[in-house]
Computed example of a mutant assay.
Amino acid sequence: MRRAVCPGSFDPVTNGHIDIVSRASQLFDEVIVAVGVNKSKNRLFSPEERIEMLRTACEEFPNVQVDGFTGLLTTFCQERDVSAIVKGLRAFSDFDYELQMAQMNSKLAGVETLFMPTSPGYSYVASSLVKEVATFGGDVSGLVPGFVLDRLTAKLAGPRTE
C-alpha cells in the first residue's frame, strides 16, 4: 500500500491545504493529514479544534484520515509505515526551507518528500495571512471552507485559546 502524510499546523485549514490533500489522495492509496501539536506554540485553534476541522474538510476523500502528532514527523511516519511526505510549495522561498527538512527526514528515516506546487489560485494563501486579514475584518471567505470561516469569525470575536 502506498501511504503518504501531509503534515502541517493547519491553524486554520485553508482551501490551499485541502487542494494539496485532494491531489495527494489521487496519487496514494492512503493519505494521513498529520496535525502538528506543539504545546509551546501559541495557536489560535487548539489541536482538537484543528483536527476536527480537518476531519470535516476531508470527509469527501475516502482514503484520507486525520491524526495529530507530537515530536518528530519521521517518528510518526515510521510508526504508521509511511514512506512519503507530501508538501505543498507556494513559492521558491518555501522550497529553501522545505528542501533542508526533506533531506533531514530522508537521513533520519529514509522517508522521501514530494513537493507539490500549489494551484495558482492558492499560491498566496497561508494560514497566518488568513488569520491576520480576518483579525482586521478583511474578507477571507474564498480562502477557507465556510464552516472554518464561521469558527474563525467566532474565535476572533471571543477569548483566545492557547
Rank of each mutant, 00 (worst) to 15 (best):
Asp139Cys: 14
Ile18His: 03
Pro7Glu: 06
Gly158Thr: 15
Val144Met: 08
Arg80Ser: 05
Gly137Asn: 13
Leu54Asp: 07
Arg90Tyr: 02
Ile85His: 01
Leu99Pro: 05
Asp29Thr: 11
Ala109Asp: 02
Leu152Ala: 12
Phe28Ser: 07
Gly88Val: 04
Thr14Trp: 00
Cys77Lys: 03
Gly110Asn: 05
Val31Trp: 04
Asp11Tyr: 01
Thr113Ala: 05
Arg23Pro: 10
Gly110Ile: 05
Leu156Asp: 10
Phe136Arg: 05
Val13His: 01
Gly110Ser: 06
Ser40Gly: 10
Tyr97Gln: 10
Gly138Asp: 11
Thr74Arg: 06
Gln100Arg: 13
Leu27Met: 15
Met1Asn: 14
Val148Thr: 13
Val64Cys: 12
Ala134Ser: 10
Val144Arg: 07
Phe61Glu: 11
Leu54Cys: 11
Asp81Thr: 10
Ala91Gly: 09
Pro159His: 14
Leu89Trp: 01
Gly142Ile: 10
Arg151Gln: 15
Ala109Tyr: 01
Met101Tyr: 09
Met1Leu: 14
Asp139Ala: 15
Ile51Asn: 05
Thr153Leu: 14
Arg80Glu: 06
Pro120Glu: 06
Glu59Leu: 15
Val64Pro: 11
Thr74Tyr: 03
Ile51Gln: 11
Asp19Tyr: 02
Ser93His: 09
Thr153Ser: 15
Phe28Ile: 11
Arg43His: 06
Met53Tyr: 06
Thr118Val: 05
Thr74Ser: 09
Pro120Ser: 08
Gln78Phe: 04
Gln26Val: 14
Gly71Gln: 08
Leu143Phe: 09
Ala91Pro: 03
Val33Thr: 10
Leu114Cys: 04
Val13Ala: 06
Arg80Asn: 08
Ala24Leu: 10
Gly146Leu: 11
Gly158His: 15
Ala91Ser: 13
Val13Trp: 03
Gly146Lys: 12
Ser141Tyr: 12
Glu162His: 14
Glu132Arg: 00
Val31Gly: 09
Glu132Lys: 02
Gln26Cys: 15
Lys107Ile: 12
Ser127Phe: 00
Ile32Leu: 07
Cys58Asn: 10
